[in-house]
């Protein structure tokens, strides 16, 4: 890690949130991976977004991966990944949260409005539920689809064919609340 700005930022994070970060690693590109605990993950993301000197205001990506069958499977089934970017300082950071099967993750829609669809996609493809999400529906697949394709126990060539069109969720157009 040669970037002094990033070093300062890591120090700041450790001072304030050291207790709730399980581990800090670095990936192949030198980007820090901050392993956060599920319960204060959203607080942590808010801190990263708002704290002076950090300014990770930009959610570059929100995704997940399945650990089934890997060496880390004993630690958790899923890992939810937040890729953050700080345009002001030109640094990137990655927050990871471990989840058991059927364990809901608190939603980040309150922090970034754009997390809405990304969380829907993770729900659709992994079956991870996001607690407090305003509209957790499938996004890519048909609403009648069974299973979650990006799970490792889903055979990659298993297709499901629907001969009629996906029903229109007309009630959503009438609903003013979301």
């Amino acid at each position: 890690m040669a970037n002094p700005v990033l070093e300062n930022q890591i120090k700041k994070i450790q001072d304030r949130f050291g207790a709730s970060i399980a581990k800090i690693e670095y990936d192949r590109a030198g980007c820090p991976i901050l392993w956060a605990k599920k319960d204060d993950a959203i607080e942590f993301l808010k801190f990263l977004k708002a704290a002076a000197g950090l300014d990770f205001i930009f959610l570059a990506d929100l995704t997940a991966y399945d650990e089934l069958g890997s060496e880390e499977e004993a630690l958790s089934r899923f890992v939810v990944v937040y890729n953050l970017y700080s345009p002001e300082h030109g640094t990137r950071a990655r927050v990871k949260v471990r989840l058991r099967l059927d364990e809901p993750m608190p939603t980040a829609v309150g922090v970034w409005s754009g997390a809405n669809w990304a969380e829907r996609e993770v729900f659709d493809l992994f079956g991870i539920r996001f607690a407090g999400h305003p509209d957790l529906r499938r996004i890519l697949l048909d609403i009648r689809w069974e299973g979650h394709p990006l799970r490792k126990d889903y055979y990659w060539r298993k297709s499901q064919i629907f001969t009629d069109a996906e029903p229109i969720p007309e009630h959503l157009l009438k609903d003013e609340s979301r």
Binding site: R138, I139, L141, D142, L173
Partner: peptide, 16 residues
């Protein structure tokens, strides 16, 4: 009010 739907060209590239 509008609702955008997507997924009509989903080919599972990430799974592939």
């Amino acid at each position: 009010k509008s609702i955008s739907e997507m997924g009509y060209l989903h080919r599972g590239k990430e799974k592939i």
